[in-house]
Amino acid sequence: MDEKNFKILKFWVTAFLAALLFLALLRAQYALAVIAGIAGMLFLTIVRSTGKLVIDEREQSVREKAAQLTYLIFAPTLGIGSLGLLVLSSDHNFFLESLGVIFAYLTLFQITLYTLSSYFIDRKLGGDGKEE
């Protein structure tokens, strides 16, 4: 990734976090606002350009591993969370049930996205078994 693409990425992530912070304050979701603020500060401090070249192959590898770790933690958390909420929510607690359904959809979306990206990346890297 060159410096231009890195700046574009950084802009969109920052814009998203700022919008989330604003909406959280508007809806009086103060915990969400605080977490969005902390995430924004961490992102702006840690993910930054370290020199003339923004990302070389080692930094690319660091990001790939960080993304892998994020998925490894996030996907099971969301999946187990959705099952837990759907099982534990009583008939009258629509909020928890809705949250469970949303988590379940997000988990399914993640699984589908992983399957598709894994399939296409595998083909791109020669996994289709075609002889030249």
Binding site: T50, G51, L53, D56, E57, R58
Partner: peptide, 21 residues
């Protein structure tokens, strides 16, 4: 055309470079 951190990491055997590098 890599970062200084990459050179340090390779020298210290903390990062195995790609075949290209």
């Amino acid at each position: 055309r890599v970062s200084r951190q990459t050179v340090i990491a390779i020298e210290n055997d903390k990062y195995l470079p790609s075949l290209t590098l």
